[in-house]
Nucleic acid binder design. Structure first.
Lengths: 156, 156
DNA sequence: ATGCCAACTTAGATTATGTCTAAGGTGAGA
DNA sequence: TCTCACCTTAGACATAATCTAAGTTGGCAT
C-alpha cells in the first residue's frame, strides 16, 4: 500500500497523518508477525530517531481506537499488534510459544441461547498445538532456538 | 473437589502437594473468572500470609507446565489463569474489556491444507462484541463502571 | 536415625512493559 | 497572524513478572 493510501486511511478516521503516525502504521502494515510495542518502537526509532517511545505507544493506542490496528490476544505479557487487513485465525505453539496466522475460514457462532443478550462482532479461532518446527520433536528437548525463555526454577 | 482429589491431581504430575501449592490450586478451582496472578496472590496471601508472591508465581508456572492450569489469552497486560476443568470458549467485550466464558461447542479445525505439518491439540473460540451490560448502551458514553481505565491522552 | 539432596519457599532486588506529566511543537481555520 | 486542538517528547512513574541468594522440608540411601 502506498503512502497516499495510508494517509487517506488515517484521515478517514479523523487522525492527522503525522510523520510519526505514518511510520508506525506503515511498519505495521509491512509486518504481519504480530510485533510487540517494544519491537515496533525499536524498529521505527531506528528508522527515525525522532520517534519517541511515548509517541509509539500513543500512536498504537490511537490506531487501535480508530480500528486500523488490532491488539491480538496472547498469553505473553507484551501486547502484540496487527494491522487489520484481511481476517485470520491464530495458531499458538505449545512448545515454543510462536504465534502464526492461519487463513481465514468462517466459524460457527455459539447458539443465541449461549450468548444471551451479547452482541457478537466477530469470532476468531485460537488453535493450539505444535508448530511446523516443533511437531517433529514432540516432547524431546524443552525449547527450540528463539522462544519464550521459560527458564523454570533452575535453582542453584 | 475435595482435598484428597487435589492432592492426587498434583502428585500424578510429579508435583509435591505443599500447603502453598494446594492453596493456589484450590483457589483456582474455586474461581472461574480468570483471575490475574496479582489477584490470586492477594487472595491466597490473605488466606495464608505465609504464602509469598514469588511462590504464587512459581506455583502458577509449575501448574501451567503440568497442564493443570492454563494461562488464558487476553489483550490485557496481566496474565490470567484458569483451572482446566471443562473446556469453554471466551467472549471479550469490546467496550468494557470483560472476559466471560461461553459454553463449549466443538468448532471446525482449519483444513489440513492450511495447517501444513502443524499438530493441533485444541481449537478455542474468541468471540468479540458487546457484553450483556454494554450491549444496550451501544456507542453512547465511553465506559461502564469497573473496566480498563482507557483514559486516552486526555492532555491538560 | 541420620545426613543428603532435590524440591520447594521466601523477601527483596531487578527487569520488562506500559502510562503519565509537563512542556513544547504544528497546522488549519478564524 | 493568532489560536487552539492535536500531537510529540523526555523522563518520571506505575505495574507485572522474574531473578537472586538464602533458608526449609521431606523422602530416601546409607
Amino acid at each position: 500500500m502506498d503512502a497516499a493510501a495510508i494517509r487517506e486511511k488515517l484521515e478517514a478516521t479523523g487522525l492527522r497523518c503525522t510523520p510519526q503516525r505514518y511510520t508506525v502504521m506503515s511498519f505495521l502494515m509491512a509486518h504481519h508477525d504480530h510485533p510487540t510495542a517494544a519491537e515496533i518502537f525499536a524498529a521505527v526509532n531506528t528508522a527515525d530517531p525522532r520517534l519517541s517511545r511515548a509517541t509509539t505507544y500513543n500512536n498504537l493506542r490511537d490506531l487501535v481506537e480508530a480500528g486500523l490496528v488490532r491488539e491480538v490476544a496472547t498469553e505473553g505479557r507484551a501486547a502484540r499488534y496487527d494491522a487489520t487487513g484481511e481476517q485470520h485465525h491464530h495458531f499458538i505453539c505449545d512448545r515454543c510459544g510462536k504465534m502464526e496466522d492461519i487463513p481465514w475460514h468462517p466459524v460457527p457462532s455459539p447458539t443465541a441461547n449461549a450468548l444471551g443478550k451479547r452482541v457478537v462482532r466477530e469470532c476468531e479461532l485460537i488453535i493450539r498445538g505444535l508448530c511446523t518446527q516443533c511437531a517433529p520433536h514432540r516432547r524431546t528437548t524443552p525449547k527450540p532456538p528463539t522462544s519464550k525463555p521459560s527458564n523454570h526454577r533452575s535453582h542453584n
